[in-house]
Each structure stands twice: as structure tokens, then as C-alpha cells.
Nucleic acid binder design. Structure first.
Length: 675
RNA sequence: UGACCUAUGGUGUAACUGGCAACACGUCUGAUUUUGGUUCAGAAGAGUCUAGGUUCGAGCCCUAGUAGGUCAACCA
């Protein structure tokens, strides 16, 4: 038996440690805690897959808990959408929970806190409270109501609950530490008054608990062992633990909060607020627009649950900021669809082909494989006749040898049909090709096994019989933003990077008739074009297909590369290092580089050296002797400085002398060059 | 000018807790192919932010820097 060498992410390691320390495996319990104020997106999928994945791995229950403590923002519509998305991803929650289910318990605990002198009712404005709170670098001041007698707080809290005060007039605050370096510990708010109907509790409550108070205690009530959230809650952990300390019964399990980095995807944004802005400003058609990174958008676009789970799996979990390239997501969906999608033919930009030697009225039904990757997928029939459409870009009158498609005098195969040869073209007055006249080799029928059919030809084209084709609208999508990280610019708003061409609608595409029976669940590969699925806007009399993702296209890549031979290197958009820093990085490799690269590295160092001052490099003179690369780099910089008129100090001379006496040839040489 | 977190090929993650850096995507070759897809074979690309230290030995530990992120909502 092979020992499983599967590596654990840091969350799994924490769990394993807890298990090793004696936590019984049966006590493991997780939760996914969305706030029902928006749709789930691919970033949430990371959290969903983490929590539910852990549940599957350890055979532990995972609750779906709606964090619904703010009636002003939350709606039933979102609850329904969230449940739909999680179920679609293929996960089953143990219990459907709501923080609002615990309002009474939370209230009782709050009363207990007041009685113990650990909470008090405040009645200042939010401005006053904010001012007293201080700043991260200066301590706060206590509220004048901080030492209000317990009985008075109790009475006021009771009145708050009974709706005797207007919204915003009173608050319940925990009494912790106004001087804590952690702002969250400076007497955080436990309850505020909100006069809005709650989607579940209606008007039962006028006071609502804040996140920190509700979340940790909900974890505790549900006996969640590991409460996993994103990094921005790291500073909340101290408060999470403080609240737990106040009510914790040692005979019960104590939840543990741990934080991981949220997942970002390149060329899109991932915050609910920003996605909502795209919806509200009508940049997209809605939360489930196929260009949106929402689960519902991806679903409509044609992504499968498997592909999204695979993506989460490959992306991993860690604690550093990240921007995962969309190409990984695209890889995941292609990989899935390649194995499962039915192959069909569709022509999006047609040009007419006439087979001059094919009988006028003849129609053949040809057989086409549904999926060459799956031997059991069967075949379907596709009609063939004298007049066809092929893709306009699949023909050129004259072509070089790199063009594998149809051109005058050359042969090409029609997928699952015959080999044809282009003889002539007909053009309109503007010079546009309107018809391509070809002769067909009638002995070359696909699958006939004849010698002619086995002939090797350079290219294979997809096609559609004009007389039999059905039409449909096809929607092609491109990235929503032109910038890799549209919301990572301090000086620019993410909306400035919107791609104006993210949607391309082809009003009339021609499809093989088999597609007339397509359903919303079907996934197709339009051969040589990409993966497509029916859009929800589609109607029986008007089919609409979404392009999920294109096939990899090394031909297109080759072409664009040829068009723009030298693309300026647009990388290095973050972490602008200082020249000295870059020099140090370059230097350390110096001793390991092959010659050509060595010359380049040296040249770069010499150039960067112009921007470095003597004061900056002097400390580097006592670089450890074994770090030869760095010493060489420093020597090079020193050379430049001396040449530019820098006085040769004692320290510099010493450094040069040390270099001269070094064993390393390169260092010795560079020292000799400037001594 | 405080606290906390983070730093490994272009990108995302690994490295059995100290033994000279692995996997995936992407990129580039070549083969196969009735999809310029798939598949297969291969290549290039990082000495792990910098400096010092501990150690026989450091990506992992310590110190100091640097860079990025988070925190001052009656949001979650």
C-alpha cells in the first residue's frame, strides 16, 4: 500500500492537529455562513468547497447558516438564490440555519452580560461614538454612559427591545477596553435599534445583534468546531474569543475561528458591492449575466458544477493575497466539457459553397460521432447537399502553406463528409466573395473506407447544409474588464476598465438541424469553435446559444503573434522595487548564470547603478563573504559610482581589497577593474 | 505613525515541520489526429523579498529591514 502523500492545506493541518490533541472526530462540524444580501460568486465557491469539502473529507455535518442580522439589507430572494446555487454545486447541508433563529438566546445572553457589568446602554450619536473611539494609533475615550448603573442599562435595554425608542437613539455596547490596539475591542456595539421588517422574524424584534456578537455565538449554539472565514476577519478573532469567554460552558465544544485568503479572479471584480454596481448601472443584464463571476452567471454561461469544484480544488487555500488567472477556470471547464459535450456543427459567419458536381436535388444523411472521447456516446445524422455554408475565415483565395483550410486549387475535408477542392469564386461588385465553387470527390465519403476517403488532407472544416440549416442567435462573451485586477488601482475606479466589447451578438448563425431539439441542460461543442449551451432567454421559435468558452486555438494565437511581433512587456504592475533592491536580486544569481544571461544581468545592474547612491551601498560592503553574487553586484555598483565622481572612501577601498583577495574569479576580476 | 497578517517560476499552490525547490495552469517544441481541439512525448522558466544570525546544513527557526494587505460602519 502506498502511503497517501496528499498534502494538506493549512486549515486541514489545523484540524489534524486538533484531532491529534484529542478532539473527537465526531465533534467536527462546519458551516457556510452567507449573508442573504446578494448572489454567490466564484470567490464564495472557494469557501463553499472548503467547508463542504471538509465535511465530505471528515464525514462531518456542514450547516448552511444565513447570517441574517440586518433586515435593512437582506431579502428572501437572496436566500433562495443562495440555496439554489449551493445545491447546484452538488453540496448537501446538514441543517438550514438562520442567525435569526437565535435572537432570543442572544438577547438572554446580552442581559446576562449587562448584569455582570460587561455591557451597557449608550445613547450617543454615531459621530460622538466614532470620535471617542480614537484611531488605530491613539487610544479611545470612554463613553460618558460607560458606568451607567446596571439596573438602568437593564431597564433601557428592555425598552429598546420593546420598541419604545426610535432607531439610532440607543445602543448596547460591550465594556471591554477603549485603549486596546485592536479597534474591535474598544467597546464594540452588541445591539442597535432597526425599524425594518425582517424577512423571517417580521416585526418581532426592534433590536438586532451585530455581526461579531451573532456570529460566534451562533457557531457556539450549533457547536461548530471550526469557523472558517476570510482574512479581513482576522482582527475580529480577539473579540470572537472574548464574547465566547463570557458565555462558554466548558462541557461544550468551543468553536475556533480561522481565516484564509479570499480568492480573486483576473479580469473581474469579486465584491458584492461592485457586482451590484455593475447590475445597477446596467453594465450587465443582471446578477446572472453570463459575463458575471457569479455562480448563477457561470451556470447560465454553460459552466458545470464539476468545473467549478475542480477550479476550487486546483486553486487551493492559503493566506496570501492572490489573483488567480482565468485561464485556470477555462482549463477546468474545457476539460469537463471535452469529455461530455455533444459534437455538432454550426457556422457563425457564413459563406456559400456550391459543389458543382453534386446532384441538384440529392440529400444524404451522414453519420456524425457525438463525442470521439466517449465511445458509447453514439452518433447522430446530419444532412448534406449541393449548397453549403462554411465559415468565411476558412477560405482564402490564395494562401501560404501555413493555412490548412480551403483555398483555390487546394483540397480540404468537410467534417464527416467528403473531400472538396475549390475551383473558383464569385464576387459582388464590392469584391466580396459570395460563392465558392468546388468539386467534390464522391469517392471520399467519410467512413466509407475507400482509398480516396483515407487520403490525408491538410485541413478539416465544419459546414452546414443551407437548405436544412436552422438559425439561432449566438452570444459570444469576452472578459468584462480590460485590466487584470480592475479594483487594485488606487488612482482609478474599477469602472474605468470595463471592456466595451465584452458581448458580441451574432443575430443569425446557421446550425445543423439536430440542434432544434436542444434543451437548457445540454452542452454542445460547435466543432472547431468552442462550447455552447442554450441561454435562458431562448424560446422555441428563437434559439439563443451562449458561448461558454472557445476551444484552444493555436492558429489564432499564431496569427495575433505575427500581427504584433513585439508586445511591450506589460508585466511588473505591482511592487515597484527600488533600484538597489533589484540589483540585489539580480546579483545573487550572478554566480550561477550562463554566459549570455550573465552579460544581460551585468548590463542591467550597471544601468540600475546610476540610480543608486553611495550611502545606499556602503552597508552592503560587509555582506557575508560566502554571498559572492551580492558582493560582485555591489562591486559593479561601486565601479559606476567611482566613475561618476564618487570619492573612494576607506570602506570602499577595504571592500575592493577584500575582493582582490577573494577566491572567486569573477569577484576578483571586478575588483581589479575598479581598484 | 500603532496592531495584526503575508512574501516560493508569469499565475495559483506544495515541500513529510531543518536535508540543496515539486505539482497544476500558462508558454514553447515535436508526434498523433477527419476538430489548428483532444491525447502523447519533451523543453524553457524560481535558488524561495533583502541583510544579518543560529546550524554540519535554512524556503522552513531568530533579529532587523523592505514591500503588499487588513483594522477607526448603529455592514457582514
Amino acid at each position: 500500500m502506498k502511503e497517501s502523500t496528499e498534502t494538506l492545506n493549512f486549515i486541514e493541518q489545523i484540524i489534524e492537529e486538533d484531532l491529534a490533541k484529542g478532539l473527537p472526530k465526531e465533534k467536527l462540524r462546519f458551516r457556510f455562513p452567507p449573508e442573504p444580501n446578494g448572489y454567490l460568486h466564484i470567490g464564495h465557491a472557494a469557501s463553499i468547497c472548503l467547508n463542504f469539502g471538509l465535511g465530505e473529507k471528515y464525514n462531518a455535518p456542514v450547516n448552511l447558516r444565513f447570517d441574517d442580522t440586518n433586515p435593512a439589507k437582506e431579502e428572501q430572494e437572496y436566500v433562495d438564490a443562495i440555496k439554489r446555487d449551493i445545491a447546484w454545486l452538488g453540496f448537501k447541508w446538514a441543517n438550514e440555519c438562520y442567525s435569526s433563529d437565535y435572537f432570543q438566546q442572544l438577547y438572554d445572553w446580552a442581559v446576562q452580560l449587562i448584569k455582570e457589568g460587561k455591557a451597557y446602554v449608550d445613547q450617543q450619536s454615531s459621530e460622538q461614538i466614532a470620535e471617542q473611539k480614537g484611531t488605530p494609533t491613539t487610544p479611545g475615550k470612554p463613553s460618558p454612559f460607560r458606568d451607567r448603573p446596571v439596573a438602568e442599562s437593564l431597564e433601557l435595554f428592555e425598552k429598546m427591545k420593546n420598541g419604545e425608542f426610535p432607531a439610532g437613539s440607543y445602543l448596547l455596547r460591550a465594556k471591554i477596553d477603549m485603549a486596546s490596539p485592536n479597534m474591535h475591542m474598544r467597546d464594540p456595539i452588541l445591539y442597535r435599534i432597526i425599524n425594518a421588517p425582517h424577512h423571517r422574524t417580521g416585526s418581532d424584534w426592534c433590536i438586532y445583534p451585530m455581526y461579531d456578537w451573532a456570529h460566534g455565538e451562533s457557531d457556539y449554539i450549533e457547536q461548530v468546531s471550526h469557523s472558517l472565514c476570510t482574512l479581513e476577519f482576522k482582527l475580529h478573532r480577539e473579540l470572537y474569543d472574548w464574547y465566547l469567554d463570557q458565555i462558554y460552558d466548558p462541557s461544550l465544544l468551543r468553536p475556533k475561528q480561522r481565516e484564509f485568503a479570499r480568492r480573486n479572479l483576473s479580469y473581474t471584480v469579486m465584491s458584492k458591492r461592485k457586482l451590484l454596481e455593475l447590475v445597477q448601472k446596467k453594465v450587465v443584464a443582471g446578477w446572472n449575466d453570463p459575463r458575471m463571476p457569479t455562480i448563477s452567471g457561470l451556470r447560465r454561461r454553460g459552466y458545470t458544477p464539476e468545473s467549478i469544484r475542480k477550479f476550487s480544488d486546483l486553486s487551493g487555500i492559503s493566506k496570501r493575497d492572490n489573483v488567480t488567472d482565468v485561464s485556470l477556470l477555462e482549463y477546468c471547464i474545457r476539460e469537463d466539457l471535452n469529455k461530455t459535450a455533444t459534437r455538432v456543427m454550426a457556422v457563425l459567419d457564413p459563406v456559400k459553397v456550391v459543389l458543382t458536381n453534386y446532384p441538384e436535388d440529392k440529400v444524404e444523411m451522414l453519420s456524425m460521432e457525438n463525442n470521439p472521447e466517449d465511445p458509447n456516446s453514439g452518433t447522430h445524422e446530419v444532412p448534406f447537399s449541393k449548397e453549403l455554408y462554411i465559415e468565411r475565415e476558412d477560405f482564402k483565395e490564395e494562401a501560404n502553406k501555413k493555412f490548412f483550410r480551403l483555398s483555390l486549387g487546394n483540397e480540404v475535408r468537410l467534417k464527416s463528409a467528403y473531400i472538396i477542392k475549390a475551383d473558383s469564386v464569385i464576387k459582388d461588385e464590392a469584391g466580396n466573395i459570395t460563392e465558392i465553387h468546388c468539386t467534390v470527390d464522391l469517392n471520399s465519403k467519410s467512413g466509407s473506407g475507400t482509398e480516396a476517403s483515407l487520403r490525408k488532407v491538410k485541413g478539416t472544416l465544419h459546414w452546414v447544409s443551407i437548405a436544412h440549416a436552422i438559425t439561432a442567435e449566438v452570444r459570444e462573451y469576452d472578459r468584462l474588464f480590460l485590466d487584470e485586477a480592475p479594483d487594485a488601482h488606487e488612482d482609478k475606479n474599477f469602472m474605468e476598465f470595463i471592456n466595451p466589447d465584452s458581448l458580441n451578438i451574432i443575430k443569425k448563425a446557421y446550425l445543423e438541424p439536430y440542434l432544434a431539439q436542444a434543451t437548457l441542460d445540454d452542452k454542445y461543442q460547435f466543432q472547431r469553435l468552442g462550447y455552447f449551451t442554450l441561454d435562458t432567454d431562448s424560446k422555441e421559435e428563437k434559439l439563443i446559444f451562449n458561448k461558454t468558452v472557445g476551444l484552444k486555438d493555436s492558429w489564432a494565437k499564431q496569427n495575433t503573434a505575427a500581427q504584433q511581433p513585439k508586445q511591450p512587456d506589460v508585466q511588473q504592475n505591482q511592487g515597484k522595487r527600488s533600484p538597489l533592491n533589484e540589483i540585489q536580486q539580480l546579483s545573487k544569481k550572478l554566480t550561477n548564470l550562463p554566459e549570455e544571461k550573465l552579460a544581460n544581468a551585468k548590463a542591467s545592474i550597471l544601468k540600475l547603478a546610476e540610480e543608486v547612491s553611495y550611502e545606499e551601498i556602503e552597508p552592503l560592503f560587509n555582506t557575508a563573504a560566502k554571498k559572492v553574487g551580492t558582493r560582485i553586484g555591489v562591486m559593479l555598483v561601486l565601479g559606476v559610482l567611482l566613475k561618476n565622481g564618487q570619492e573612494k572612501t576607506e570602506a570602499a577601498q577595504e571592500f575592493i581589497n577584500a575582493g582582490l583577495n577573494d577566491d572567486h574569479e569573477m569577484l576578483k576580476a571586478e575588483a581589479a577593474a575598479i581598484q
